[in-house]
Amino acid sequence: MVDLENLRTIAKETISREDVKYFIGWREGTYGFSVSPHFVREPAEADKLIFSPLCSNNLATYLTLAEKLPVPRGQEPDTRKVALMVKGCDSRAVVQLLVERGIEREQVVVIGCPCQGVIDTKKVEQLLGQPENVVRARWEKGKIICQLPDGEKEFIKEEVLAQKCLKCRYPNPVIYDILFGEKVEPWCQEEDFQEVKEIEGLTLQERWDYWQEKFSSCIRCYSCRNVCPLCYCEDCILDRLNPTWINRSVNISENTAFQLSRAFHLAGRCIECGECERVCPVNIPLMKLNKKLSKAVKEMFDFEPGLDPEAKPLQASYRPDDKEDFIL
């Protein structure tokens, strides 16, 4: 059971600290299974905080998404810490940001929340439709319970959990200052990359047919880029007009180039929180691209990002004996 009283107390204490700017958590959304990130600036606002199987947003995104506007003359920039709640996967994003020095350790207060998996709203809406009222959900004895207008409904994990959670190996935060709740037992030891292997088993033509269909539906809203906690370049190649690496026009050529560069820029960095795939309005299976690179990184360099804050970034390091059987 999630002790919300305790969560709200932690939040109130944290936000009352002088060195904390704001506290980011989750709150109930406005309808059905929706949940929204919640920014707590005053202790009173902490009463809206929740932590449930519906909290899929990776809040680490907001560490780098926060806009750095010019400070008016005579004012000092606000250098206070940001407190944020992280699930296991989200915490890996924090670690990876530390590795890349996208943030500094003293800029954040990490509230680690051991997680038993979050609901994929697309899956659950297929089962139940879109309920009008806000649905609450909770974990109980390895099951997911949704409170619906006509009573509670129990689901086994496989029915409703997001794909990434079924294979989750890091349900417990790998970095935290305050731990909220008790650590849980991981339910998956080994990543088997099953989805990737399925595609690898296809012929080249079949693979292209598959991806061509997916890439063609891309509308280039860039939500996958924006939601990603690790896509935080101030000057993104996609926004650049001079030189224009990737034309703005939407067609299979530019969409493929966009998708390749998005995925590639996360090679050895993606911590597999699955946010890109969740937010995609046209349902492109982006995690199948990211996972492929994770698999390659694991096999070739025996590396997993977002675990060790002292590690060196994969593509900014090398070993003289890196595999090179492909070289002529």
């Binding site: 990130p37 920014f39 995104t61 998404l65 509308i219 809203c221 860039y222 939601v227 937010v279 309005p281």
Partner: peptide, 8 residues
């Protein structure tokens, strides 16, 4: 505050 700035 929560807006991602995407084009959806």
């Amino acid at each position: 505050e929560p807006c991602l700035g995407c084009g959806i």
